[in-house]
Design a protein around this nucleic acid. Sequence first.
DNA 1: GTCTATAACTGGATAGAC
DNA 2: GTCTATCCAGTTATAGAC
Lengths: 191, 191
Amino acid sequence: MARRSDKRERLIAAGCEVLYEQGLRGTSLADIAERAGVPLGNVYYYFKTKEDLARAVIAQRRLNIEARSADIEATIADPRERLREFIRRAGEARTQVATYGCPYGTIAQELGKTEGVLATEAGDLLRVQRDWVAAQYEALGLPCDEAKIRAIELLAAMQGTSLLTHTFCDASIMKREFERLDRRIAAQSLQ
Amino acid sequence: MARRSDKRERLIAAGCEVLYEQGLRGTSLADIAERAGVPLGNVYYYFKTKEDLARAVIAQRRLNIEARSADIEATIADPRERLREFIRRAGEARTQVATYGCPYGTIAQELGKTEGVLATEAGDLLRVQRDWVAAQYEALGLPCDEAKIRAIELLAAMQGTSLLTHTFCDASIMKREFERLDRRIAAQSLQ
DNA sequence: GTCTATAACTGGATAGAC
DNA sequence: GTCTATCCAGTTATAGAC
């Protein structure tokens, strides 16, 4: 009867967690199956290959990013305040970041090295954020090129801070630097 | 007669390359042995385990960092100019960074996720750079705490830029952002 | 649709000849 | 010291019973 089950969703959710914690190469399908409470062999009914599951996990992460952006857009009208909220929300994850790194940056970096196909989709996780940030800068009156440059500058600061926060296992780094970024945005003149 | 051979050095050199290109988890001992021109089984005469070889590779990277710092110190007296030279030299690798990421940041991030023992030693690659940069800021008259904060801020900008350069495979990002950092240092007032 | 058993393969590590 | 052959554990993936 092709009755529905939530196994597929559970596998994706578990995959999100474990891939974040251990990276793709450090994770076996058995790890994911166990976390999801699904027998190993059953995974292949829902996903043709490990790469296929990874792709679904990345797609889910992307949906999360887009949902967050949409939520900020729906509740805040001023582009500058939107950027500040974007920074503030990212900064909330600092305890997790200190343990596992940025969920988007770490996967983009790991997969960017070798996994040809997945590299692009993982990179999109940063690309969509760059585009959204750039759109806010444009809305603030910057020309398209300059907006994109500023977006990269902001994302780079966030990603680099996350990397050091992770490497030094020190959430206070992220707290301080993200507050600095917030102040910079608040005060920034956009000639 | 225990005659010397350069096999150990070749293995470390090959390991430096391959680990940078593929990450630790993406690299087999066979990969390294092949690149070094050493039979697989022979690797174990020089290194007890794969982790042991990785540790030697990281130690080599650290020596490279320290040699570069020492060289800058020996040729440039002014701390501000030393920092600018530090940024300039790092920026020279931008083509490689666009392909494989920062050799220090990527390994720190990968090993920081799971490898307990190696994580610390990989993290040291960034720690020694932070300390050296902080020492230059101190020499410029900043108190110890503030110098450390500025060092983290600078390294974060460099690391984040490297990550985006890698993810977007675009060396021009690194060129532009590192030049910006250089100008910022040159103009920075240190009250 | 679900699950067990297992095939096929990869990769770290060792034994032992030379 | 050097190298070949091989063991063994873990992992992806499949076959086939239920």
